[in-house]
Design a protein around this nucleic acid. Structure first.
Lengths: 333, 333
DNA sequence: TTGTATGCGTTATCAT
DNA sequence: ATGATAACGCATACAA
């Protein structure tokens, strides 16, 4: 099966190993007739290039490393899936390592993958700071998903969080809501803060009030939503709608509502952010901002491929969210 | 950084390359004093073995392939995570490919990974039949998660589905339910059918009635739960509790209930299977059978490691579920 | 316990 | 356009 070597193929085809290599790699011109001979020989022997030998000789692993905070998160899954599927079509491999959202572990993952001589690194991390990344970029091509680093704009696949939160807030306002609270994510998170900006902008534009009490910083987890609602309730701010930092936090809002006898959207409206799979299956179905995860993953993988294997300069892309109207927001009179 | 070769290390340490190799691979005895010299030299040069060269020379890639149906599913994430984390600690790599639950794609994934010369294959698939797997096993060590194949029992990490469904049903019965319906998964799925057996056993043991109307075969997806409930409602069977084939289907039951004005668990009880993350966050929190995904993944990775790199004979393991009581089941009087 | 020598399968350089 | 040949960096017989 996978036993035939390039030498045997070359013998069968009556050419040199170098020529066989030329047809497999498509790197140098080969006369059409000899190409056919080689192809036939490859077919007959079921030849599969030995990738270890290829790597050793070419100094390329044909493998990309990918680090994600949590491989089991509802947000990361689709991104991994998109990257893997795209690269597989291009005959490149992906080694995925989890970073668990911790700086130490994520740096270890980087080392681990570098030791494996990956040709590039796709990073969907939370614990790696700008300085570290800028340094890293000098050693290996990196591609950032969902993280903006000054000076690395060209290797960045980014979501317009500001715009997304703005549109979400607008939707609430358009439905007649005036008292809107925002459960933001961790205060140190870039995307969380950008969403806060969009929220404020929409509110101010509409002449609505935003005080410190209207924004609580908890986390992008279910528990964050629960705690956020608790804080809001305790603070006594009036509200008819809540904007959750992401869908998971929105589920936390649902849970808090259930625990405290509130009904969504009758007692108050909720809108999320990300559009994870489950958003479509909770009751009421969650209105949210669609995050084009799969498109982003695909674009990222393509960009990495083109730069690394095609010498094309990378170029950052900014994606936009789309509003997905479902059943968790109702009109306010 | 990663530029130093084994030759340079050997020179700095004043030994032969072979000796350096011996300390890195731990394969042959090395005098303690020389080992220290070598270690020091490695440290000083920041030596990292070139894995391509290692693979080429040793005929081993130190990489395992893993195929999962859906990398973005709530069930698969934790398993992937467990496998990856375990193997990383052991300094082995994992290349993950998705099979999308389709035979064709899953076979392609196998070929893809074989071409990459992985040392073994961890399979969490749905589209590969017994014959194919038995053939495959002759070519490469394989490890099956959640799939039983006659003759490959020793390479199988399996869940006692029968027992799990039995315990779930017992729980319902213990709470006083007598009219219990079961929304089973796809009729061609092994685990789905084993769960049916456990369900029937518990019912019969308790002298309760199970007709064809009590069991509907739909799918292990949210939509499967919705459709299942529809069929049950249309068939007119009386019921006070429903056993869902898995948690996702249980969420479908929730959705159907919400759409049709039923309240869980007041109008009827629901119990799931798998204990995926979200089960803890829906309202009401879903009672379910805990599937030890992480443990299973860890055990599988360990077994693969031991057989492939440690020459230890593999041995299948059967895992048991645990009942997790939350809020979706109530007493029936 | 350690060193020497060879091979692993491919790509790349240099001729032709 | 094609062939000969030298790396690539390590593991492993075999020898000592």
């Amino acid at each position: 099966m996978s036993k035939a070597s390039i030498l045997e193929v070359s013998k069968l085809a009556g050419v040199s190993p170098a020529t066989v290599s030329r047809v497999t790699s498509n790197a140098a011109p080969v006369r059409e007739t000899t190409r056919k001979k080689v192809l036939a020989a490859m077919e007959e022997l079921g030849y599969q290039p030995n990738s270890a030998a290829q790597s050793l000789s070419s100094k390329r692993s044909n493998t990309l490393g990918m680090i994600v905070s949590h491989v089991d998160g509802p947000f990361y899954g689709p991104v991994m899936s998109g990257v893997e599927a795209t690269l597989r079509k291009l005959n490149k491999h992906v080694i995925i390592a989890s970073g668990f959202g911790e700086e130490q572990a994520e740096k270890e993952a980087v080392d681990f993958l570098m030791a494996r001589q990956v040709d590039g690194l796709i990073l969907l991390t939370e614990g790696l700071d700008s300085e570290y990344l800028k340094d890293l970029e000098k050693r290996i091509p990196i591609y950032l998903i969902n993280q903006h680093v000054d000076g690395l704009e060209n290797r960045n696949m980014y979501l317009d969080n500001d715009d997304g939160a703005y549109k979400a807030t607008r939707h609430l306002i358009d439905q007649g809501h005036k008292d809107i609270v925002y459960i933001a994510g961790q205060i140190y998170k870039q995307d969380a803060n950008e969403r806060v900006v969009g929220f404020k902008r929409a509110m101010q534009e509409a002449g609505l009030i935003v005080t410190d009490k209207h924004i609580v910083h908890t986390s992008f987890e279910v528990e964050g939503g629960v705690i956020g609602m608790q804080q809001i309730a305790e603070s006594g701010v009036p509200y008819t709608a809540v904007l959750a930092g992401n869908d998971e936090a929105a589920f936390g809002v649902y849970e808090w509502a259930a625990r405290n006898g509130f009904s969504i959207p009758d007692d108050f409206s909720v809108i999320g952010f990300d559009d994870i799979l489950m958003a479509n299956y909770v009751s009421p179905r969650l209105s949210t901002m669609h995050f084009p995860k799969y498109d982003m993953a695909k674009a990222c993988a393509t960009m990495a491929y083109q730069e690394i294997y095609g010498k094309k300069a990378p170029e950052g892309i900014k994606f936009k969210t789309d509003l997905v109207v479902r059943d968790s927001v109702t009109k306010q009179h």
